[in-house]
Each structure stands twice: as C-alpha cells, then as structure tokens.
C-alpha cells in the first residue's frame, strides 16, 4: 500500500486552490540499476479529484511526471469544511484515495 497523499485545499474569494503531494516512485522504465538491468516502469497513470462528490479534475500522467508528484489546480466554489477527495491509480493497478477538508 502506498503512502498517503498530502492534500491542502484553501478557499479564497470563491475559488478553491488544491495542492496535492503524492508519494510515488514514478519509475520511468528507462533507468538501469547497478547490475545494468532495466528498472521496470512504475508510475501513476490516472488521477481524479472530486469536491462534494463532483469531479473537479481528471488527469493522466506519463512517466515524465516527477517522483513524488506535486499537482496544484483551482476550481470555482468550495466552502470551509467541504471535502476534497483525490484518487490515483498506477500502471500496476495500485490505487490510493485520500481526502482533505477545505480550510
């Protein structure tokens, strides 16, 4: 099981800014280990974020997204205490869902 994400969501002037820090190795499949063997690709492929059950962002990642990916986005609406839920899935089928309340 992957480590939890860090999610911050803050509402200001009717717009909520969400910042997500995921914990994932994001292995590209290009790198070789000490013995020269190729390290197989292991990376987040899909992500979705919802606010009170409504989808506010859908993303697809390639291997070029950094290790422990950072993502920030903004949506209209959102009030203090509302729930923002982020889910990701990687190419090995592993998945993780975390949530945060808007501050």
């Amino acid at each position: 099981m992957a480590n939890p994400m860090k999610i911050r969501a803050a509402a200001k002037d009717g717009v909520t800014e969400v910042k997500v820090l995921m914990s994932h190795e994001m292995e590209t499949g290009q790198r070789k280990d000490a013995s020269g063997a190729r390290v197989p690709a292991h990376f987040i492929t899909e992500l979705s974020a919802t606010w009170n059950g409504k989808v506010v962002l859908e993303a697809q990642f390639g291997t070029a997204v950094s290790r422990n990916p950072f993502l920030a986005f903004k949506f209209k609406g959102g009030a203090r205490g509302d729930k923002v839920v982020v889910t990701w899935k990687d190419n090995k089928g592993d998945t993780r869902t975390d949530e945060a309340a808007i501050s």
Partner: peptide
Amino acid sequence: PEGTEANVQIRCK
C-alpha cells in the same frame, strides 16, 4: 470540467 479554472501546476522530469 466546467467550473475548474484553466490553471494547473505540476512537477515534471
């Protein structure tokens, strides 16, 4: 989706 601003940030390799 509608309501989400055209403003995203991400870290890339």
